[in-house]
Design a protein around this nucleic acid. Sequence first.
DNA 1: GGACCACTACTCGGATATCTAATGTCCGAGTGTTGGAGG
DNA 2: CCTCCAACACTCGGACATTAGATATCCGAGTAGTGGTCC
Lengths: 161, 161
Amino acid sequence: MRMSEGVEWALHTCLNLTWLPAGQAVPAAKLAEFYGLPAAYLNKQLQALARAGIVSSTSGPRGGFQLARGPEHITLLDVVVAIEGPEEAFRCDQLLKQGPGADPTVDYRQSCLVSRGMRRADLAWRRELAAQTIADLRADVERAYPATPGNTVNRFAALRA
Amino acid sequence: MRMSEGVEWALHTCLNLTWLPAGQAVPAAKLAEFYGLPAAYLNKQLQALARAGIVSSTSGPRGGFQLARGPEHITLLDVVVAIEGPEEAFRCDQLLKQGPGADPTVDYRQSCLVSRGMRRADLAWRRELAAQTIADLRADVERAYPATPGNTVNRFAALRA
DNA sequence: GGACCACTACTCGGATATCTAATGTCCGAGTGTTGGAGG
DNA sequence: CCTCCAACACTCGGACATTAGATATCCGAGTAGTGGTCC
């Protein structure tokens, strides 16, 4: 049950975008160069964020990506769902349909108590992710590492060369 | 981030084992036949449970698997970890090591605040899984579907034919 | 009749294929810019 | 000098390879039972 590495890329990239001047798009190539990532593949992940309405994309010269809304309105859950999809980690293949006393009309994803127990944990996970926003993360980082915003802006400026 | 289907198989199988007479091993073939699963592959999952000390295995005639300890001492987390492995779902590849101001001596899996946020959710998930035991599930099932224990025993008896 | 022994059938355990999904790459569609030509 | 236009360079978006991991299968090692044989 490994999460796609795109989630890590997306979270750090969203965080970086909060430190860059608003209203200005940054191309995927720059965002990728920042961490030495493959540009085309990061682009693919950013497309997923765009489809989810987390970032907005602009084509052509001076184009790129920027946050589609304020970082205080983007939760970690939003990003994870955008990359990984909305379905829960535990998949119930409705094994009980093959067992004794099975009722074909029942949806065991709802009534199966094993599923119910797993879903309880899944909900706790989602609740915790939804409780944290990109803005929260940014504030935590700025408190612990005050130099990070400046370093980030400088690094991006250097990449323009 | 899809969980292996082996988790569902393992949970339902552990539950079934609680209803069968204790001290008596059940071969993987019977456990698989119960839900129409591929026997060799379920066997593989049961081996993982055995390595984790959740079930004990016996070779030869009259051999098979049985719970290694009381169901009240087997949590959902135990089963998930046995099948999926102990590492958390979010994997931090320490992207920050490629960023500005990176310190090669720092373990960013610990200090990175993105990782920290994701780990918080992961811990909530694990806490919820650890709070539920196989015995709890069994009690829930017996309360909601009193016929299940009998049906299960009968089905296994029929499989001996 | 009892005890020992070899043989058989059964079961787990791990080594080996196959297949799906994540990872990585490439090229085309669209867009803003820019330079030049014409008025 | 200003305006319009056409060519260009840049960027996203999705289609197409490649690779890692999950899924599925198979065969060998070991064990308990069983039947026969010898004492």
